[in-house]
Design a protein around this nucleic acid. Sequence first.
DNA 1: TGGGTCATGTAACCTGTTACATGATTAG
DNA 2: CTAATCATGTAACAGGTTACATGACCCA
Lengths: 180, 180
Amino acid sequence: MLKHGILGLINYGDMTGYEIMKVFRDSLSYFWTANTSQIYRELQTLKRKGFVTDAVVRQNGKPDKKVFSITESGREELKRWLMEYDYGNSNIPLCMKVFFAGELSRKENMERFKKIKDDALKTIERYSAAPEIMDAYKTRVEDPEVSIYWNMTKEFGIRFMKMLAEWCDDCIRELEGAEG
Amino acid sequence: MLKHGILGLINYGDMTGYEIMKVFRDSLSYFWTANTSQIYRELQTLKRKGFVTDAVVRQNGKPDKKVFSITESGREELKRWLMEYDYGNSNIPLCMKVFFAGELSRKENMERFKKIKDDALKTIERYSAAPEIMDAYKTRVEDPEVSIYWNMTKEFGIRFMKMLAEWCDDCIRELEGAEG
DNA sequence: TGGGTCATGTAACCTGTTACATGATTAG
DNA sequence: CTAATCATGTAACAGGTTACATGACCCA
């Protein structure tokens, strides 16, 4: 995932590991942080796979730097990742993909938001259908107090999905509006 | 994290790895899934650390099973984890901790929700203060199209935090209401 | 006889975290 | 002189994923 985040940034323009680190720290830290060591490691992996190339640039008064550029195959990989319908189990992959969604067409993105919304609505139905979470475990656990918290967890899930669906709707509307 | 999830389940009553797997699959899968191999591995770790003990139970017509029980030190570890204010970078640790929050007092939980809410509100302010995300990168990226998606990401973050704050409020209200 | 459930794991891999390590320049 | 910035990494560990492996019983 970080791999694709880095690829997305280099796609905006050539960058060094240090610059990528700064972007994560200064601009993307609200949804994702990466530490230096991992960035440098991923850059090596990306290079090995032929998704980026590097060139050493000498500077005066500053240490040498390695500037990375994306290759054609890297651009393909970035697009492949963006097209892939997989948002993992946390907000981060979702934010990552939307962040770099400019590489896809508006049409593709609108369809994508529609699909995410539909899945969210389906999930809400699934949650709501189960009247009590962990019914099987009620019998094991004497204390009825604990089920309060089980239901709070469930409620969180429902509200999250509702929020997601509404946000998708608004994103679609924004893309439609700006288009016409 | 899975370690503590498993510990929380065993705390409800003795269980085998297989039973834990079923709970994850049948009841907790909507916010967390764990695969068998990982469960068995974590059980070994928990045992090595003295948080659980195991006993082999022979069955007729079925394979032997290893029943795990929580120890006093395991119960302490569970409580330590619940008290710790650390919700990682995804929804899962939050859901996990709330799910097992019955182990803490109502007062402790109300304070916890209050803190999460306050942090969420602070985060909203931080997000809103930055009028444009990735200002520094606008200059690099010629295409103004991409910033639409940057702002969608930001909007997602704000809405998530709003949802979180409201949910915390409602949880607090529920705990107050049921108390009096 | 073939698939599902019960019940246990191992091995390899990928990704993220923490700690450590170096060394020059520049601003206060 | 000292702290920050620029710029690079390595090593070890932790946790999650995927694939593989075994074997008996039960139901259709």
